Computed example of a mutant assay.
Amino acid sequence: MQIDLSGKTAIVTGSTSGIGYAIAKGLAQAGAQVVVNGRKQADVDSAVAALASEAGQARPRGVAADVGTAEGCAALLAAQPSADILVNNVGIYGPQDFFEIPDAEWLRFFEVNVMSGVRLSRAYLPGMVQRQWGRVLFLSSESGLNIPADMIHYGFTKTAVLSISRGLAKRVAGTGVTVNAILPGPTLSEGLQAMLKDEQQASGQSMEETAAAFVMKNRPSSIIQRAASVEEVANLVVYAASPQASATTGAALRVDGGVVDTIA
């Protein structure tokens, strides 16, 4: 199978590092014109430069905008009025006890993790429907099914994303536009590496070994028994964004290493 996204414009929110950058890279390598997004201009410029050197003939561009706000979404739309592929990747997370989470933090998680995708999908989907082709992808998480006791506010936003994705797929039924959710599990992104850095140095193990131990302690149902790489997550996103995935819509596509212990 050879995925060719030549002539397609793809927006990936929160794509200056981690899973988002890997997705942007994968789409660019498949021929898409990729729009990198992040909050800080310096980070966006750095990611665009790296992408241009790593993705062959790709000519990525960047838009610095905080899509966790209505104003930031409007700024991205003004800079890039249309898209064929929208990957709602941006998200925040962090452990915090339920009884210590103030209202403002619940609202911040909701704005970034949920409303960014709502606003951008509302902006870009009509054009896709008019052109009778498009792909919208929401980055959910296995935590949307396996709600973590120490990150209830995060898990709730990822469950909400599943509902929105499924509902939007029904809303654009028969138009040639697909909408899906991607559910990563523990992934060895820069964020996880930073969290495990002290533990890794103290143990003398490699980062991969440290991450595998973390997974087995915190997600013992993992079948692969390690953290996924960002490229492994990106591979599923690139496929779901491709013409070959035309019969896949309204789906919750898991790349969680088997953490969620259900068949369906």
Score class of each variant (00 low, 15 high):
8 K>N: 08
9 T>V: 15
12 V>Y: 11
14 G>L: 07
18 G>Y: 06
18 G>T: 03
20 G>Y: 11
21 Y>P: 03
21 Y>G: 04
23 I>F: 05
28 A>G: 12
29 Q>K: 14
29 Q>E: 15
36 V>W: 06
37 N>Q: 10
43 D>C: 05
43 D>W: 01
50 A>E: 13
51 L>R: 04
60 P>F: 12
61 R>T: 15
61 R>D: 06
62 G>W: 08
64 A>Y: 09
64 A>P: 10
67 V>G: 11
76 L>R: 04
85 I>D: 07
87 V>Q: 07
88 N>R: 01
89 N>V: 08
92 I>K: 11
110 F>R: 00
110 F>V: 01
115 M>H: 11
115 M>F: 14
116 S>P: 10
126 P>S: 07
130 Q>T: 14
130 Q>W: 08
132 Q>I: 00
134 G>Q: 05
138 F>A: 00
139 L>G: 03
141 S>T: 04
144 G>V: 03
149 A>Y: 13
150 D>M: 09
152 I>Y: 05
162 L>Y: 02
165 S>T: 02
179 V>C: 10
181 A>Q: 04
182 I>R: 02
186 P>W: 00
196 L>F: 09
201 Q>H: 11
206 S>T: 15
214 F>C: 05
215 V>P: 01
218 N>Q: 10
219 R>A: 14
222 S>K: 03
242 S>V: 06
243 P>Y: 09
247 A>R: 12
251 A>D: 04
252 A>D: 08
254 R>I: 01
263 I>T: 13
